[in-house]
Computed example of a mutant assay.
Amino acid sequence: MRLFDMPDSGNCYKVRLMLALLGRRFERIVIDPDAGETRTAEFLALNPYGKVPVLEVSPGEFLPESNAILCHLAEGTPYLPAAGMDRARVMQWLFWEQYSHEPNIAVARHWLKHLELDEARRAELAVRQEKGRAALEALERRLTEADWLAAGRFTTADVALFAYTHVAPEGGIGLNPFPAVRAWIARVEDVPGFVPLSA
């Protein structure tokens, strides 16, 4: 397998983390979106949306979208329940992550780390940070009542949410008000096979 990857992207990191947890070997191809490398004709042939990550799962077969990749990789493993409500609960968190969590926490982080903020973007940043805190409050409520997000065990839901949650402070969204989230982050980091974002 080949992974088209941006090292600082949480969406790419969650795929690298899942591959590591599964012990799967892969070739890593680093792409720089800021340099226009996701807008070339060659890359758009792999993913017409022009985004990373993209996993070449077999020669000539390319799968974009981080959570779709997670589900593909985890199929048939304990990281993705086979059927029923446990699987539905995992999917619930995966969908929520891309709609309510990532667009706020990840975007705030990207803007602060990689862009110069004009007045309009600075105002929008405050909105994203507020929504990011609301997302962390939802996680806190869940993790106050359970060690893991779904199915009573560590799953792809935890992988997906960990990727940007643990770096939320880089987007100006502190974790101090969220003790259950901080404890969960420590549990994820103790899972056998765990690799950090910088790996």
Rank of each mutant, 00 (worst) to 15 (best):
A126M: 12
D158E: 05
G50Q: 12
L46P: 00
A88P: 04
L94R: 01
F178N: 01
E124I: 03
A135H: 09
L63N: 09
E37T: 05
P196K: 04
S66Y: 01
S100M: 09
R25E: 09
T144N: 05
A35Q: 11
A35W: 08
T40M: 11
F178L: 04
L55F: 08
A120I: 07
M85Q: 15
E56L: 05
R16D: 00
L112E: 02
V90P: 04
F62V: 04
V52D: 02
E56T: 09
P7W: 03
L22K: 12
S198N: 06
L149I: 09
Q92F: 10
G60V: 04
K14A: 11
P48V: 05
P196C: 03
L161V: 09
A126D: 12
R28G: 08
L17I: 06
M18V: 01
W96L: 03
A68Q: 11
F162I: 15
H110V: 13
V167H: 10
F62Q: 02
N176W: 04
A35S: 14
V127I: 11
F162N: 06
I31E: 10
E119H: 13
A126T: 09
F4Y: 14
A180K: 14
L197K: 14
F43S: 01
E130L: 15
E124V: 00
E61R: 13
H166T: 01
P48H: 14
V57E: 08
V167E: 03
D190Q: 14
Y99C: 09
R121Y: 05
F162M: 14
V57D: 02
H166N: 10
S198D: 05
E124F: 09
G172H: 08
R133C: 07
G132L: 12
H166S: 12
